[in-house]
Each structure stands twice: as structure tokens, then as C-alpha cells.
Design a protein around this nucleic acid. Structure first.
Lengths: 159, 159
DNA sequence: GGCAACACGCAAGAATCTTGCGTGATTTTG
DNA sequence: CAAAATCACGCAAGATTCTTGCGTGTTGCC
């Protein structure tokens, strides 16, 4: 189970390339990183099995699918005991509007990344779901105007 | 250039499957959505060319790569004229710590999703880069404790 | 009722994936 | 210091997948 220390320059190149295009063929990938196809495939498999590559995902165009509203919600709870935090975390998984969610420290307890078809649907969610959820204290929302940067995890130079 | 209205049930299945595993082979995908491989591939190509599928990306395991800190920063600017917003947006693209960034409306002007190797690196970024950037008024940070939900865009039932 | 448009499925050639094996370099061990 | 072990590479071949062209059936529209 290789960790960061076991990765060499070729592994970092592989991660960078697959992050840019996760559906690239193995021969194309092997050309870009400078080795032949079989060892390249073995490296990718190893990175997957080690959990360094968690998976692959198609990126979808939200507006083209009729999802015009992207927003973030900062949630503050009344009580932050472990059970309450778990309860709220579980609840976020049942809300399809919530794309991904983080437990955070600071002024708020949770940050929710939300996608909705329109402003009405989002407001309905905030009012009828979020604020009416037990233990929810504060809800601050930030509607997104546009994305100004969208990169993967490894965007910087690596050894 | 098909839009939402032109998508049928099979297209939605394709989007859902590729969002779950973007590297699935076309024959596997065709089996899952219930048609043969050639028309399945043609549909995927069409979705790509229409921009509905924006691309594919490998998901990486940040902690395994020595990136232990994930945080969000809410940035408020002094002046929000178009030129100033563009200037700050451009600046976020030069910061490797910033994974993706959104221009938002509400109490703040930008939301930054940041990934750093450790707390020190993140704090250095906030102090020496963010707060010392011209026109930056307020910086509120939320360190993430853990991710409680991580799904793609299309997680709910579709026609 | 007939015609055009469209998407499906079959089939075949091209490309890719996948595995086994031999070689060379680096590291470990006696 | 030398021998052995370990490791990753690249080659080659069979299996799988991709990709294209083509014929057929259905749908919608004159």
C-alpha cells in the first residue's frame, strides 16, 4: 500500500494526467508519462488499489441539464455534541439538492454545496427543509454567480 | 447540440453511470443502460460534443498524498466593480492552494476551496497571500473536519 | 399512404487491454 | 566486496474493446 513517499515522478505525472482526463487510454497515458503501456497500467492499478485514486467521475454541465442555481450554505447548529453532528450529517445525505457537504470548524458547523433547478427550488429547500430542521440555528447562503476556477487536486509541481 | 429537453431516459442513465464511474468500458455501460455498444458510444459522444459531459477526472485521495488540510475561505472585497472582481478571479488561478473558486453574492464576494499540506502552509497562504492582496477586505475561513457527503451532480431520479 | 429522419443492432477491422516472460538495474545480504 | 534477491521495465501474443459502415424497424410528417 504505497503512500506519498513511495510515489516517484512518473506516478505524479500519471495522477496529474488522469486528473485532467480520466478517460484517457492507457497507451496515450503511457506516451505522456514516458514509459510503455504495460508498466503504466500496472502503476495505475496500484494507485487505484492503494486508494490514492479514489475513482473516476464524469463532469457534467449543470446549466445544460436545467440546473441553473449553485449555492453554498453555511449551517450553524444549536448543539454540537457528537450525536447531533452525526444526525445532521446523515440528513444531508437525504437531500438531493446537496451535492456535497463538509463538517467544518469556525463560525459554522457545516458547509453545503447545493445545486437546484432554479431559485424557487433552492429557496423552498432552504425554508422548508434547512431552517425547519431541528437543531439548526443559523443558515447563511451564498448564491454563486460563476465559477472562476475549477481544477483538480494536484495542480502544482511535484517531485 | 442537444439540450435537456432532448435527453431521454437512457441518456440520463448514461450520465448517472458515468458520474459514478467515469472509466467504465463502453460495453459495460451499454449493458447497464440496456442497449448495445455502438449506439451507446454514439450517445456518449453526442453528450460530450454537446458539452453536457464536460470531461472526466480521476478523484484523488488528498490525505494519502500528504494534503491534510481542506478549507474554505469567504472573501469580501472593498470594491466590487467588474474590473476588481476580474482581477481577484484571475489571482485565484495563480494560487495552487486554491482548488476551485466561485464568485458569489451575499455577505462575501468569493468562495475559495483550498487544499494544503498542513495547517502551517494554509495559514501562510491566508496571511501572506490572501490578506495582503490589494482590495481584500474580509477573510473568513472554515477548516473542514471531514467530508460528510460526496456525490456528483445528478444524484436524483430523472425522467 | 408514402416518405424522410432517426436510432437501433449486427458484423468486421483497428486499436487497446492484459498477461506472461526475459532482461537489466538497484538494493540487500552474506 | 560479491552474490543474490527484488523490482520495474519492455516485448510479444491472445483476449477484449473500440469504432465504423450498413441494413432494418420505428416514428413523425407531409
Amino acid at each position: 500500500m504505497p503512500l506519498k513517499a513511495d510515489l516517484d515522478a512518473i506516478d505524479w505525472k500519471i495522477l496529474r494526467e488522469l486528473q485532467g482526463d480520466g478517460r484517457m487510454t492507457n497507451v496515450e497515458l503511457s506516451n505522456r508519462v514516458g514509459i510503455s503501456a504495460p508498466p503504466c497500467l500496472r502503476r495505475v492499478k496500484r494507485l487505484e488499489e492503494a486508494g490514492i485514486i479514489r475513482g473516476y467521475r464524469a463532469l457534467l454541465n449543470a446549466p445544460a441539464l436545467g440546473l441553473d442555481v449553485v449555492a453554498f450554505c453555511l449551517i450553524g447548529l444549536h448543539h454540537q455534541a457528537d450525536a447531533e453532528l452525526r444526525t445532521f450529517a446523515e440528513r444531508t445525505r437525504g437531500w438531493p439538492i446537496v451535492r456535497d457537504a463538509w463538517m467544518v470548524s469556525g463560525e459554522s458547523d457545516f458547509l453545503l454545496h447545493c445545486v437546484a433547478s432554479d431559485l424557487g427550488a433552492f429557496q423552498t429547500f432552504v425554508i422548508e427543509e434547512l431552517t425547519s430542521t431541528p437543531n439548526v440555528d443559523t443558515v447563511r447562503t451564498a448564491l454563486t454567480i460563476r465559477r472562476v476556477k475549477d481544477e483538480g487536486l494536484v495542480s502544482f509541481a511535484q517531485p
